[in-house]
Every structure is written in structure tokens, then in C-alpha cells.
Design a protein around this nucleic acid. Structure first.
Length: 555
RNA sequence: GGGCUCGUAGCCUAGCUAGGAUAAGGCGGCAGCCUUCUAAGCUGCAGACCGCGGGUUCAAAUCCCGCCGGGCCCGCCA
């Protein structure tokens, strides 16, 4: 309902300006508390045009405006026009809306189909914390967009045609796999061992390229070896994804685009444009679009390259919906080239969410050299740490409930610590930070939800209640609750899921403060406050589910 | 060498796309709050010339230019 308040304020400014024959885009901001709930600095911009000081102008404009609807009051202060929310009016409507819509509060509908590619880690080892950033951003965005009304399908692109998998296959022929290990970790072990032998004996390199060629041609035995290796690894990866609640709708194998001849069809289509050129190889000349680096599409022997297959994959995706790709920063150039290739073919271009790398204090991670922190380790450590906290705080709880809480808190903390940081920010991973359940982290939000649940357990929810005049803590909470739908569409439209993480903190913060200062059960405003708690619980749960974090009932 | 990106208190982050009022939080530090709905909570104090220099503007953390520092990309690899 906050959006309605904004629209009413906008309408009022528009109306008054129109009377003066002015039409302008109005920008609002949320000021600090003493200046109301919404504010516009429009008069600073108009002042030179109208030849009046902003202060006088603000007074004039505010004088012509009328409060009403969700606007209680309009006040000019130092050139700003400030709007005050009518809490008496908004509060009961909002609480009823949330109570009746429940987990649909804030939901949008009727938006387009989205094909969202994320995670897509090579099947040569377990997911490490860098892949986790990709998957968590992708999964959270998928949840947010789905809630905002998009029809989202998430896809994991399996790179089965890379050299890495060939090395694994080669390694599997030489070394015995450790069947006691988690499958993706066992594959990683083979990969690291094989890489080492190959580095020491360069003469084996030809065997690798031989394997790759055989797989590309689809030689039966080799094909099943590759598929076995990739699936073996993916089994392990899937287990981890399930644990951290990253949902993949479809797994798409890179080789399938070669086998069904989409790759050659894509090359054919590109051949009909003026951009496809040939010397020893086929390549795209994108200099017209400001990309000087030509994009090479085939080897001298005519076989396709990774990008060629990726173009075919994107053509297929584009035919099914709007494409959104979650890519690491190293893919920036490729993503531009890919996008241009699609543009040349007259296909709707994909959108990219680019995130910076997570590195270790000592430098980059490397699956090949076995230098990485796996997501499994991180989740284990996090859950273990959470269990220690539960034991400390709730020693008498039964063990299975303790374990359940610890797992939810541990997974939630990992997801939250990643998603709360804007994707363009590089991260240096440090154990102390990753495992520190900071005050304003996911336990903080889960705890707010748990607190709300415990109050509701003990309270009777009456059908009717009187809305009293609100304290500032209550107002703040009501306002934050009313902003949830605005934040959802903001996060979905800008494809920036970390907006929801920030909102979650703001909401939990408002709730904890309310909890501290406004007793519910022993208050003469009890009936109202119980409803406020109910609404808070619903919105907290909705927010947590967008973040992929369990809304715990107790902890 | 060319291109992209990040730089906000001792440490970590929000705000930057659409420039506006005292730069908002957390960690760490100091001082407090549990016979009252779970203290994974709350309150107070100290701590920032928003990397540096210029420009545009009535107004710049935010836009533009230059510089410095970190990261990434520029394969007939994936």
C-alpha cells in the first residue's frame, strides 16, 4: 500500500504543477523520521524557472495541495515538500490485506516467461564457494521473479564437452575412484591426480584431444564414459544444491546442441548475415558494434568451439522466453559477443547479471589444482557452528529439533552472507567472516520470525480490534510492512535480489525494536498488537522464503 | 598496451541506475538492560575530509574527466 501512498503524493504534486502549466518527472525519497514519510526536492529544480526561492515555492505548492487518502499532512520545510502517512487509515487496511492474502501478500502476476541460467559449474568436482555465489544469486532472483509474477524456469548448463571432463574420463581409466567419498569430491580427486600426471608427462596430451574428438563424434563407448563421469559428479552436486535449496528445473547438456545439429544450423543462419567472415576459420566481425575482438566460431578443422555451442543454446532459450544469465565477471566480454551474435540474427538479446569473484586471501581458487573451499565444507562448518549456538542457548531442547534448527540456521547464514552483498562487489573469503553470525545476518531475521510465532502461540487472535494511535516503533513497523510489495517488484525488475536481503534486515530490525519496547500480551492494546505481530510474521515468512531461508518457528 | 570493474570509520557492508536535509548499519572497542511474549534481542558512547585531484550544479558518496591502488578480460581453451 506504500505504492498507493506514493502515487497519491505524486498525483497531488502533478495536479498542482499542472495548474501552473508545468509538467515534470517527480522524484521522491524517504527522509529521516522528523521530515515525514516521503519527500520531494522538486522546488529546487523549479526555483530558477519560476524565479522564486525554493522555500517560498514549497510553501506555495504545499498550500495548494490537499491531504486525503493515505496522506495525512503535507508540510513545506526549507524548500522540500514533505508528506506524512495517515497511519490511522492505512494500518487497519494493511493488516487486513496481509491477513487475508497471507503468503500471497506482495505477489504479482501475468508476467512473461523467463529462462534463467545459473550455477552451470563444470562437472569436474564439487561446487566451491564461487559457484555458490552464482547459484545463490540465480536461485534468489528466480524466487523473487517468480513471486513478482514471472514464469521462471531455471537451467543448469552442463559443460560436458570441455577438456576438464575429458581429463576426468582419462583419469577414471587410470585410477580407481574412491567410492566411499561423496561423488563430486571423488571426481575432483581423480581430476587433480590426472592433471598432475598430464603435467608431468606432456606426451599424454594427445590422448586427451583424442578423447574429446571421439566424444564429439559420438563414439559409443566413449560417449557412455563421458556421460557416466558427468552424471557421477552431478549426483554429488545435486545433493549439495538440494541442501542449500537451490532449485534447478532443467539440466541441459552442451553436447545436445551439437548432436541435434543446432550448432550447424546456427552457423548457417549466421552465414546469411554480412558479419560472418572466413579466413582459416569462421568468425564474426563485430567491429561495427564497437567490439574489435573478432569472435572465432570454428577451428581450422571445422569443428565447433564453446561459444558456437553457446550461441546455439541461447538461440534455443530465446525461442522459449526472455533469457537471463548469471555470469561471473570473467564472462563479460563473451557475454557482449554472445549478445551481439543474437542481435545479428534478430533474436531478443539476453540479460546478464554479472557477479565478481570470490577469492581466497592467498589468491584465486582452482578446481584443477584442488585449491578451493567447497560449498559442502562451508555448509558443514556453518551448521556445526549453529549447533554450538543452539546448545548454548537452548540446552534443554530435544536433539533432533536442535539439529533441525542448526541446519536451517547454518544454510540460511551461508545464503544470506552471499546474497546481501551486491554482485558487483568482489569478495575475499575469510572463515571468520563467513561463520560469524553477525547481529544483522540471517539468524537475526529468523529470530524475529520465531519471536512472532511464540507470541502468536500464546495469544488469541480476535476478529475485531480497535486501532489505537501508534507509537513510533509501531509506525515504523507498519510502514516497513507496507513496503514489501514495492521492494519485490523493485528487486524483480532491476534483477537485483540483494534488495530483498536489505529489506529483510530492515523488517527484522523494526520488529525486534517493536518487540523490545511494546509488550504485546500484557498490553491494553493487545488485540491490535497481536494483529500487528501476525502481519509481521506473515511478511517475515514471505521475505525469508524469497531468500531461500527456512522461517523457523522457534530457535 | 587496450577494455571492463571495485575503492565508503581499525574491519565488513548499504546508499550510486533516476544528484538534495545531519552519509545508514554490522563486526571489533567502551558503558549498560534478563523474577516481564526466547538476550541469536535492545539502549548509549567513541570512530568517515565517501581512494586522490579537477569539472558540471543552487546542491556531488551519487554525474563527467584525469590519476593512484586491487580484481577481471583481451586463446582455432572451456
Amino acid at each position: 500500500m506504500f505504492d498507493k501512498f506514493i502515487n497519491q503524493a505524486k498525483g497531488e504534486v502533478d495536479r498542482v504543477l499542472e495548474e501552473k502549466g508545468i509538467s515534470k518527472e517527480i522524484v521522491f525519497e524517504e527522509p529521516i523520521e522528523e521530515f515525514g514519510d516521503l519527500s520531494t526536492p522538486i522546488c529546487f529544480e523549479l526555483a530558477p524557472l519560476m524565479k522564486k526561492s525554493p522555500k517560498v515555492l514549497a510553501e506555495e505548492l504545499a498550500g495548494d495541495m490537499e491531504a486525503g487518502g493515505f496522506i495525512r499532512e503535507i508540510k513545506p520545510v526549507n524548500g522540500y515538500v514533505n508528506f506524512y502517512l495517515n497511519y490511522e487509515k492505512l494500518t487497519p487496511l494493511l493488516l487486513e490485506k496481509i491477513k487475508s492474502e497471507k503468503d500471497n501478500y506482495g505477489r504479482g502476476k501475468g508476467k512473461e516467461k523467463i529462462i534463467l541460467e545459473c550455477t552451470s559449474a563444470n562437472p569436474d568436482g564439487p561446487l566451491h564457494i564461487g559457484h555458490a555465489r552464482n547459484g545463490i544469486i540465480g536461485d534468489t532472483l528466480a524466487r523473487v521473479m517468480r513471486f513478482a509474477g514471472y514464469d521462471v524456469e531455471t537451467q543448469y548448463y552442463v559443460n560436458d564437452m570441455g577438456k576438464q571432463l575429458a581429463v576426468v574420463v582419462w583419469g577414471l581409466r587410470r585410477f580407481k575412484i574412491d567410492s566411499k567419498k561423496k561423488k563430486d569430491h571423488a571426481i575432483s580427486e581423480i581430476y587433480v591426480k590426472a592433471t598432475k600426471v598430464l603435467n608431468e608427462n606432456p606426451e599424454y596430451e594427445s590422448e586427451i584431444s583424442g578423447l574429446m574428438k571421439d566424444y564429439e563424434q559420438g563414439t559409443k563407448e566413449v560417449k557412455s564414459e563421458f556421460e557416466y563421469a558427468a552424471n557421477y559428479c552431478l549426483d554429488g552436486i545435486r545433493e549439495t544444491l538440494e541442501r542449500i535449496k537451490i532449485n534447478i528445473d532443467t539440466y541441459i547438456w552442451e553436447s545436445s546442441f551439437l548432436r541435434d545439429s543446432s550448432v550447424s544450423k546456427a552457423l548457417e543462419r549466421l552465414g546469411k548475415t554480412k558479419y560472418l567472415k572466413k579466413n582459416d576459420v569462421l568468425y564474426l566481425d563485430l567491429s561495427e558494434f564497437g567490439v574489435e575482438k573478432e569472435l572465432i566460431l570454428t577451428r581450422k578443422d571445422g569443428t565447433s568451439l564453446y561459444v558456437t555451442r553457446d550461441i546455439a543454446y541461447h538461440l534455443w532459450k530465446s525461442s522459449r522466453g526472455l533469457v537471463v544469465d548469471i555470469f561471473g565477471a570473467d564472462h563479460k566480454l563473451v557475454s557482449t559477443q554472445l549478445s551481439l551474435a543474437l542481435r545479428i540474427l534478430g533474436v531478443k538479446q539476453p540479460e546478464f547479471v554479472i557477479y565478481e569473484f570470490i577469492s581466497l586471501p592467498g589468491g584465486k581458487m582452482s578446481t584443477r589444482r584442488g585449491i578451493f573451499i567447497s560449498l559442502d565444507e562451508l555448509l558443514d562448518e556453518s551448521a556445526e557452528r549453529a549447533l554450538r549456538e543452539v546448545n548454548k542457548r537452548r540446552p534443554k531442547l530435544n536433539e533432533s529439533l536442535k539439529a533441525k534448527i542448526a541446519e536451517s540456521v547454518g544454510v540460511g547464514a551461508v545464503r544470506f552472507n552471499v546474497i546481501k552483498i551486491s554482485p558487483e562487489k568482489p569478495i575475499i573469503f575469510r572463515w571468520e567472516e563467513a561463520l560469524d553470525f553477525e547481529r544483522q545476518g540471517s539468524p537475526f531475521i529468523q529470530y524475529a520470525h520465531a519471536r512472532a510465532c511464540r507470541i502468536l502461540e500464546k495469544a488469541e487472535i480476535k476478529d475485531s480490534y480497535e486501532v489505537p494511535s501508534l507509537s513510533s516503533n509501531e509506525k515504523k513497523l507498519v510502514k516497513v510492512l507496507s513496503k514489501f510489495p514495492v521492494k519485490v517488484s523493485e528487486a524483480a525488475e532491476s534483477r537485483r535480489p540483494h534488495i530483498i536481503a536489505n529489506y529483510a534486515l530492515e523488517l527484522a530490525d523494526s520488529f525486534h525494536r517493536f518487540y523490545m519496547f511494546e509488550p504485546v500480551l500484557k498490553s491494553d492494546k493487545k488485540d491490535f498488537r497481536v494483529h500487528l505481530v501476525l502481519a509481521s510474521k506473515i511478511v517475515l515468512a514471505n521475505t525469508l522464503s524469497l531468500l531461500g531461508i527456512d522461517p523457523l518457528e522457534e530457535m
